[in-house]
Design a protein around this nucleic acid. Structure first.
Lengths: 245, 245
DNA sequence: GAGGTTGTCTCATATAATGGGACAACCGTA
DNA sequence: TACGGTTGTCCCATTATATGAGACAACCTC
């Protein structure tokens, strides 16, 4: 466990021995020994007198972790079709606590790239994928999630002022009826998305997808058109999981 | 180290307790305790009475590992441009021992997908990226690499009969002059690629790229045309690394 | 229901990691 | 080029820590 904390530390960008020793309050001697072992096995990349970086074995494990989720493999073709059709960035995510966990991302062809990354976490209540996932959570818990998202700060992100709760609740109720959601620059200024939930054989929401793009490519009328399209893709994935319409 | 071996074991597809205990010849009791700890921290995904899968933290670490390689970030835009221009699958890889290690992959738009995966390893001597990397290795070592590739067996792959060494050597010498390489279905039947090496400021080969596609999209004359194109992209990436033409 | 697998717990034991320290090699900078 | 700060390398007594055996219940599949 200590070794893994060390990896997390390096992942977080602390790549000097002293810094790691401080962050974990562990003697330099111990940290050094562990770094050596991890580097020798390929879990870390070591540049002498420069620092440590995450190594190739972690790339391998990470990719395998993605492949082992049948959801990713099943959803891929549908996501690609959606990306091709819309030209925008497509996301796939699942719930992880009170957050979205991004499982897949297909970059848009419009040149500008989203900040989002596979393997990243974001507040549920303020992203397209997240709100779609919330459609599978009892509305009584929405308020908490809304509050948590408001408190969360995203490093380096340009956070817009939050939508008032009353309005948010009304919108969500509306989304629930339609079975798709909008995100109107609530997570990041200049980014809008259209999302929809993915359900499994027991009809519970297990994932969600979204199409995201810069606001200038996402006027209101286009979002309205995109709703049914995104929902149709989500349904197609759901059916691949055994869901009955 | 033992815990990491356990992760590798799960990555390799052994997801039952008994199997893991056997593979690592470790008592069931110990394996169980470790699995529990790893699952509790999110490094494994546990489905009770079903098995263990690699967890979300590994996805996160894997992605971070990729981001920490400046090479990947630098090369990305060039690779995307190449993919768009050719419509085929584009690879980026580095040398890892006697193998290629794939760092990035942009799927082609022709519908059929390559077996290759980011984080995967392949013999140097029998892939497009690998042969391009070999251009940076003293020709005296080529013979060994050629032999190793011949001995390697790839699970589930349809391996064509090897090219005789004499011919192989002649081809490589040719590639060295042109600074690009061909792979004529040597790694897998039906797949052809064109590759080129990437160099850094010290003029040593640090990576390689390739464009791969099904043979029907890769007639000889197209490959000949693609050579300079792929090489130009490789040169562009090299220049981003400080290489002087 | 039976057989095999898995999850949970306890405990004595000794393995194996710990952390302190001392020293040399190295980097950037003054 | 001399310096402070950081890093790489080694040693060793200490004890904390993981180990592995076993017993039992819960569980899945056939």
């Amino acid at each position: 466990m200590r070794g893994l904390a060390l990896l997390e530390c390096v992942a977080a960008g602390t790549n000097d021995v002293k810094g790691i020793a401080t962050r974990l309050n562990t003697p330099r001697s111990t940290v050094h020994r562990m770094l050596n072992s991890l580097a020798a096995e390929g879990y870390l990349h070591h540049v002498p007198y420069k620092g440590y970086l995450l190594g190739p074995k972690l790339i391998h494990l990470g990719m395998r972790a993605l492949e082992q989720r049948p959801l990713v493999a099943l959803a891929r073709p549908h996501l690609e079709a959606l990306a091709q059709r819309t030209g925008d960035t497509v996301h796939l995510g699942v719930t992880d606590g009170a957050e979205v966990f991004y499982l897949d991302k297909i970059p848009g062809t419009r040149g500008l790239e989203m900040r989002s990354r596979v393997g990243q976490r974001m507040p549920l209540a303020s992203t397209g994928v997240g709100k779609a996932l919330m459609l599978g959570i009892p509305p009584s818990r929405w308020r908490d999630l809304y509050r948590e998202a408001g408190e969360a700060t995203i490093a380096g992100s340009d956070r817009p002022p939050p939508v008032p709760w009353a309005k948010y609740e009304t919108q969500m109720a509306d989304y629930l009826r339609r079975d798709w959601v909008f995100d109107l620059e609530e997570n990041e200024v200049g980014v809008r998305c259209v999302g929809a939930p993915v359900r499994d054989i027991s009809n519970s929401v297990v994932a969600a997808i979204s199409v995201a793009s810069a606001s200038q490519y996402m006027p209101n009328d286009r979002m309205a058109e995109l709703g049914p399209v995104v929902r149709a893709t989500a349904h197609a994935i759901s059916e691949a999981l055994g869901w009955k319409r």
